[in-house]
Nucleic acid binder design. Structure first.
Length: 566
RNA sequence: CGGGGUGUAGCUCAGUAUGGUUAGAGUACCUGGUUUGGGACCAGGGGGCCGAAGGUUCGAGUCCUUUCACCCCGACCA
């Protein structure tokens, strides 16, 4: 492509609403333009990057035996009613009616559609397993789109669905997809981590997220410094503690603690580590039809993990409660304990199971119990509800956990039979018995990857594309288009590289050196061949964007040298 | 969905407290010239329903009412 003919509107200044590096540089370098909140146009460079990513995904999917399909973007609302997700998804589903007043939704994900396509067409275990995927625009009417391409309402996603006759076979495919995803992200040149995740609203027996490591990531992940373990904090667990503080020695007793309510107050009052103090977090668990107050008990040194709390109660949502609401129930805020507490449901963190020497509220104004032995509590109360802390022990080895930020670019689920059962998608097994498909689902955000690459690979001058993601591999810069020798060499090289199937841009604009360099850096071509004043001495240069180095090359060697680098 | 902010040239923003020439700057764009190794310089030029609707006024970018859009914090987020 000749730069003089290319539609690449670069700007010196970023739009004022861009906050993230990826948003700023993708806008400034002319990859994307915003049309409305959460909606973006891909201009030629952006479209090329999208295609690069799609091609890699396609190659790896075909290699893994998955087949590409394309499902209708507009989907009948009836399917969503059938699966029950029309309520669950709520306002994120963009609904509308056609001229015949039938309701449709714009697909935010395509489990229902894919199951519908397969059901009654695949009817025997002999036709399984099957893995179908598509790369397609999705729409979610997010309450608050933000961060440019990172969280748009309209976005491009690769979504794959696999169908199996057994859980074992689904597990095998899940591992195969994890491996395929790993290859895709590796090829894209990304630093990433595959972590244990919460399965969220989609359900299923297990899931993993693919996290691109970047400070601007929205997710916090706990990773082990010794082994491969990594998990979203929403799902991270820990092994038993090793450095347990010294236990306070005392008899079981009710102790007067006037106006001593917070964990910090109690630590000072009793001169005891928060480890031995029971913290109560009161929340309201909201279910489909009703809601109730739930008391969550954790150690004073821990914090409640909201997603875990939600899973422990089976609630759709966990919301705050006021002290007044608690008092109405006869609960005494500041002095809540699990003993003799029948006013509200309670859930106790697993780390408190059989704990001894504990201090907890006595459910009476200004009193705490001391030296409480938790082994008296019923097992049914215990769940893992505490958020892991940095420095906690890895659940897999002796390592220590630390936190880092990640961008979720993929999420793979062991779905099981949730959707196949709801939609009555069944096959006949070896015994002629009808069974729902055992399913897996595998998502990867294509447009989000575009942003993630830049979040991880940029500097103050702009984008730095990795080789497999770059819109063009080589940029040939003619410093001065009035110099015939420079133009001749540039044109020659351009023709040569095109013939060699290298994606090449020829910057033949009548602009000054500095202007063109800034532009090349902003766009982020991996290599720019600078044909300039050194040509008099028979030299040109290769500018390596990533290394930020310029290397002199004999003009006769330039073609072979650049091929070498690519 | 709660709280806050901003809408003026393609982009970044002045101007709005106190209404009053023809609405400005930088940048980008066009023409001519000089320049040609880090977003150059000089001269000339085009470009605006001041987000929209209604109102107050002799007069509104500026005051009042309504509305829309976008952004930020939070809630939410397969």
């Amino acid at each position: 492509m000749r730069r003089s003919r290319a539609f690449i509107p670069t700007t010196k200044e970023a739009p004022s609403d861009a906050q993230l590096a990826s948003h700023i540089y993708l806008s400034r370098a002319g990859f994307v333009s915003q049309v409305a909140s959460g909606l973006y146009n891909y201009m030629p460079l952006g479209k090329r990057v999208i295609k690069k990513i799609e091609n890699i995904i396609n190659e790896e999917m075909h290699f893994a035996g998955a087949q590409e399909v394309e499902l209708s973007f507009v989907t009948p609302a009836d399917l969503w009613k059938e699966s029950g997700r029309i309520e669950k998804f709520g306002k994120e589903l963009l609904r509308f009616h056609d001229r015949k007043e039938n309701m449709f939704v714009l697909g935010p994900t395509h489990e229902e559609m894919m199951v519908d396509m397969v059901r009654n067409r695949v009817t025997s275990y002999k036709q399984l397993p099957l893995n179908l995927y598509q790369i397609k625009t999705k729409f979610r009417d997010e309450a608050r789109p933000r961060f440019g391409l990172m969280r748009g309402r309209e976005f491009i996603m690769k979504d794959g669905y696999s169908f199996h006759s057994s859980v074992e076979d689904m597990d095998r495919e899940f591992d195969a997809m994890e491996a395929a995803y790993k290859k895709i992200l590796t090829r894209l040149g990304l630093d990433f981590r595959i972590v244990e995740a919460d399965s969220g609203a989609i359900g299923g027996s297990g899931s993993k997220e693919l996290m691109v490591i970047a400070g601007s990531g929205e997710d916090t992940i706990a990773i082990c410094d010794t082994c491969e373990y990594g998990a979203n904090v929403e799902a991270a667990s820990r092994s038993g503690r090793t450095n347990i503080p010294e236990a306070p020695i005392a008899e079981f007793n009710k102790f007067k603690t006037p106006d001593v309510k917070s964990i910090e107050d109690l630590e000072n009052f009793f001169k005891v580590d928060g480890y031995y103090i029971m913290k109560c977090v009161a929340k309201r668990a909201v279910y489909e039809e009703e809601s109730e107050i739930v008391l969550f008990f954790i150690r004073g040194c821990d914090n409640l993990q909201k997603v875990k709390a939600q899973n422990a109660t089976g609630a759709l949502d966990i919301v705050d409660v006021s002290e007044e609401e608690l008092k109405e129930l006869g609960i005494v805020p500041g002095f809540i304990g699990p003993l003799e507490q029948a006013k509200a449901k309670h859930v106790i963190d697993i780390d408190l199971k059989d704990a001894k020497h504990m201090i907890c509220g006595a459910n009476e104004e200004n009193y705490h119990f001391i030296n409480v032995d938790m082994s008296v509590m019923d097992e049914a109360y215990y769940f893992d509800i505490a958020e892991v802390n940095e420095g906690d022990a890895c659940p897999c080895c002796d390592g220590k956990l630390s936190f880092t930020k990640g961008i979720e670019v993929g999420h793979i689920f062991k779905l099981g039979t949730t959707y196949s059962s709801a939609l009555k998608a069944e096959f006949l097994d070896e015994n002629g018995k009808a069974q729902p498909f055992v399913m897996g689902t595998y998502g990867m955000g294509v447009s989000r990857l575009v942003a993630a690459i830049i979040e991880q690979h940029h500097d103050e001058n702009g984008c730095i594309w990795t080789k497999e993601s770059s819109p063009y591999m080589v940029n040939i810069m003619i410093s001065n288009v009035k110099d015939d020798a420079q133009v001749t060499l540039g044109e020659e090289l351009y023709a040569q590289l095109q013939k060699a199937n290298i994606e090449v841009m020829l910057d033949d604009r009548k602009e000054r050196f500095g202007f063109k360099m800034k532009d090349a850096e902003l766009i982020g071509f991996p290599y720019t061949i600078i044909i300039g004043k050194e040509l008099e001495n028979g030299l040109v240069q290769i500018f390596d964007r990533r290394a930020n180095t310029k290397t002199d090359i004999d003009k006769n060697m330039i073609f072979s040298k650049i091929i070498e680098r690519i």
